[in-house]
Design a protein around this nucleic acid. Sequence first.
DNA 1: GGCTGCGAGACTCG
DNA 2: TCACGAGTCTCGCAGCC
Length: 603
Amino acid sequence: MDRQVIHTEQELIEWLKGAGDTLSLDTETTDLKYYQLECLGISLCDGKRACYIVLGDKDGQVGLVDYLRHRSVCRGRCVAFHNAPFDLKVLHKLGIEPPENVICTMTAAHLLDEEGDKGLKDLAIRYLHVPEDQVKHYEEVVTKGVNSTEFYDYAMNDAIWTWQLWQVFKPLLEEQGLSNLFYNIEMPFQFVLRDLEINGVQIDQPALVTARESLRKELMQACLDTWEAGGIKYDVALLGELIPEINLNSPKQLVEFIQTRLGVRLTPEEDGGYSVDKSVLESLKDRHPFFGKLLYYRSVEKLANSFFEKLPECIDGDGRIRCHFNNTVTVTGRLSSSDPNMQQLPKKGTALANVRALIIAPPGKVLVGGDWSGQELRVLAEVSRDLTMIDAFIRGQDVHLTLANGFMDLGINEKLLYESHPQFQEIRKKYKDQRDKCKTINFGIPYGKTAYGFALDWNVTEAEAQAEIDKYFSKFPRIQEAIQGCTRRVKSRGFVANLFGRRRRFKHLSKRAFRQAFNFLIQGASADMFKLGAVAVRKLFLAHEEWGGKIILAVHDEIVTEVNEQYRDVVMKDMKYALEHCVSLCVPVVCDIGWGHNYADCK
DNA sequence: GGCTGCGAGACTCG
DNA sequence: TCACGAGTCTCGCAGCC
């Protein structure tokens, strides 16, 4: 492969003259986070030649970046990246127009092997058979300097391997029936991922500081109360720090304390150890005041340390938090979020400290959020084609109560099953236990929950729980058939494919694998549905620039956006339509839309 | 004696 | 063996300098 290091505009013009309409592109940057990153250079490969455009070099940079801005290398081309959202972010930061057609080899690798390594170097060794000793790592090369021959070669290798991987992956995607998922769902979605990481969420910093202060006091008080309730003594160290006899954060010390000092016997786990988690403490609440105090201490400790103490460290200079959304971690196709994880912000805070209320709309804007109503249950209806379930959804009835009515022979008049019926609330209250039981089954089924698990929940024998499940399946036979069919496919082919062709593969057959397989059909299809919905919302925002719409959060079945206040109503109407029509199922797709000046109120 | 890495346990979310 | 999919915090221990 011909290699060239480019320092001037003229060299770049010459190089691009010989390039076709497909390129691979990789960027070298000083940081991974959007707000602070600077681009050192860009490497390109056209299959025959590779080049590295030096941007970190002051003499070259101005002219080259200007040229790249005005005569974008991407325009009219299909560009392959390894981890497209990252390089798209870098191009955005440089003000360079992105390509319309994007290829992401990292996503392709994930679709082809959801559990395998996704790193470019690992893939080059595995698929391109590059000898391991020829694969250099960033930390190793950067010590030679970012303007060394070694660094330039390293950068060009990344573009070359990306190109070559794409040549390998393209036919494999086709062979495995993954092309539609790749080209029509995942690739458009790369831009949503880019936008999410560029946009971030606006934080109410003064409110965060105030809440953190009150939470610190609350935590101290909760700690003292718990010590007092348990008769735990403490010393005062030189700097005023309190040193207790036992550490409330240590499960090991707690077990010892509860059994010997409080004299409360704990029930051993199957492995012989003892758990002191929430459910255990709840069950002991009446035995000693210590347990209630400890539960409260734990809730405040979690809120304070995991959220109110951590979030301030994540705020960028412009008052926004930009977390990382990873599209190639989960085996089901869901996104994961980290640094910080914005998908696990507590729904309930305390009166003094509600994390979600700290995510605010900037002046002149509001937050508009949409989430699918009963998404996984509707996908279950689609996957199983169970007629009772489909019927209930089409009629717009309360699905849990309708199903409970069906399988427990409650004899409720069908008209009363509609949420709109004046007597609905009364009926729902009357049959609350039956409805709750059915809801547990409805949610448990996609997880492959067993009689053993239900028995624990309901405090009945395993045989009794099994009888309930049998009755459920006899009333809704298609659901059982769907599960059995899924198990058969895992056994015969070693994988299952969801509604969109996404695959989950299994190396070993086990009960656990069968549960995971069926859950994948539901969770995985819901994840792909989310991606389609998010792409539809992004398109809507591009078509209506005046709305000032930004997608700021993605939480599995929920999408949160920031829009200009005066367009709130039209955004809500159009976004609802887009989310409800991004896929077509045998049951209606229903989306709840809400708005607020902060995330907590956005419902 | 202090630092680092890792697994366990607990908790957050959908 | 017993409910799927994630990330992060703290503790406690092993290994290292």
